[in-house]
Amino acid sequence: MATAPSSQASLLLQKQLKDLCKHPVDGFSAGLVNEDNIFEWNVTIIGPPDTLYEGGFFNAIMSFPEDYPCNPPIVRFTSEMWHPNVYSDGKVCVSILHPPGDDPNGYELATERWNPVHTCNLVVANCKD
C-alpha cells in the first residue's frame, strides 16, 4: 500500500515555493506542474548574460521525493539542453542533487552531496551555473 506524501515535506515545499515567489531569484521562475501536487514543480531558467546560454529559456521539472528534505529533488530539463552536467534525457547530474552520505563510487565528498538543510534556492543556484 502506498503511503501518503509527508505533510512535513508538503508544508516545507509550500513555504519554499511561496518564498521563491515573494523573493524571486534572478533568471529563474517556478510554479506547480499540477495545482494538486506540491511535489512537482515546473521551472524556467533564463540563460545568464555573457554565457553560451544567454537569451535562452530552458524549462525543467523538479520532482521532490516524499521524504524531502531528507533526500534531494530530481531535476530534469524538458527543453533541449547541452551541458556537461545534463544527461541526454535531460536529467541534471551535480553533486548537490546526489543523496546524502558517502559516495559509493568515491568521487565526491559527503559535504558536496545533498544535506537536509539545503533548500530549493541552493538547487536553483547549482542548476543555473
Rank of each mutant, 00 (worst) to 15 (best):
N42G: 12
S79V: 04
D103E: 09
V25W: 15
V123G: 07
V33S: 11
Y107N: 15
P104F: 02
T119L: 02
D19G: 06
D102C: 06
P48I: 00
E35T: 11
W82F: 13
Y87H: 11
N105H: 09
P116N: 12
V75A: 14
I38F: 13
E108A: 11
K91L: 05
V124K: 03
E80S: 12
E66S: 09
P116W: 02
P65V: 00
V25K: 00
P49Q: 09
P99M: 01
E66T: 00
V124L: 05
N115Y: 07
H98K: 15
T78G: 07
E66H: 08
S95G: 12
V92G: 01
P104W: 02
D103R: 04
V43T: 13
D36W: 10
F58H: 06
I96R: 02
G56M: 06
S7T: 07
Q8K: 14
D103L: 06
K91S: 05
G31K: 08
H118A: 04
C21K: 14
M62G: 06
V94A: 10
I74M: 12
T44Y: 05
E108F: 11
V94M: 10
T3A: 13
V43P: 05
P104Q: 09
T51Y: 13
D26G: 01
P24T: 09
A125H: 15
C70M: 15
V75C: 13
E66C: 04
T78P: 08
N126S: 15
A2R: 11
E108M: 12
K128I: 03
T78Y: 08
P99F: 00
K91Q: 06
Q8M: 13
F39G: 02
L12T: 08
G31D: 13
L32T: 10
V92I: 05
V25G: 00
V25M: 04
I61Q: 14
P5M: 10
P24R: 03
S95Q: 05
D36L: 14
H23P: 00
K22E: 03
W82H: 04
C93H: 03
W82M: 03
K128Q: 15
E108D: 14
A110C: 09
P24Y: 12
G27H: 09
W114H: 05
N121W: 15
D26K: 00
S6I: 02
A9Q: 05
L109Y: 05
K128P: 01
C93I: 04
G55F: 07
D102I: 14
N126G: 10
S88G: 04
K22L: 08
W82G: 00
A110P: 06
P5W: 03
E40A: 10
H83I: 01
N121S: 09
I46N: 07
E108N: 07
A2F: 07
W114R: 07
A110V: 06
V86N: 01
F77D: 00
E35G: 02
D129P: 09
P69F: 03
D19T: 14
I74V: 14
V117N: 13
G27P: 04
K22H: 01
V92P: 01
P49C: 09
